[in-house]
Amino acid sequence: MYSTSDLRKGLKIEIDGQPYVITDFQFVKPGKGQALYRCKMKNIMTGTGLERTYRSTEKIGKPDLMQKDMSYSYPDGEHFVFMDDATYEQVTVDVDVVGDFKYFLIEEMPCKVLFFNDTPIDLELPVFVEKVIAETEPGARGDTATNVMKPAKIDNGYEIQVPLFINEGDLVRIDTRTGEYVDRVNKK
């Protein structure tokens, strides 16, 4: 269990069997009153927000969370199979947890998988992933403007906005946190 002195932004706690991360934290003491700890938090699994105020004597649940280094292996229907780098154990992660990351997964990609009570609930990818542009209108030769964008699709159909000079077959870098184009990767 945590005590209120442990509370801070970013701390992961458990309420009613659900894991939460504290997004905003404030120590308050209303005029001549007791110390209170105001927390805004987000459910790690559902993303739902919650506000809670604690007294200094209260104990707060500590979730059984573990982050493991895993490599992506292959898709399996509605699941994605990852392998534990340490034990080679295979784990299937639900598509709901993977979300839009499914477009960026590459075989053997090093990922971090967060487990809550031994169930995978969150996934962290490398910040940048390189993908080939499969479909886009031809770029105007010599147009190096980076502020005018056009739609493009990568090999698995995921659509991004790219600058006009990008052509089909180009390798581009995508930020997995935002899902947006970063730059073109020069072919070796």
């Binding site: 308050v28 209303p30 009153g33 007791q34 209170l36 105001r38 506000e51 105020t53």
Partner: peptide, 14 residues
């Protein structure tokens, strides 16, 4: 009610 007073002051009034 001291406890309720503190909570409501912080959560509802302030």
């Amino acid at each position: 009610d001291a406890d309720r007073f503190d909570f409501d002051l912080v959560e509802k009034v302030e």
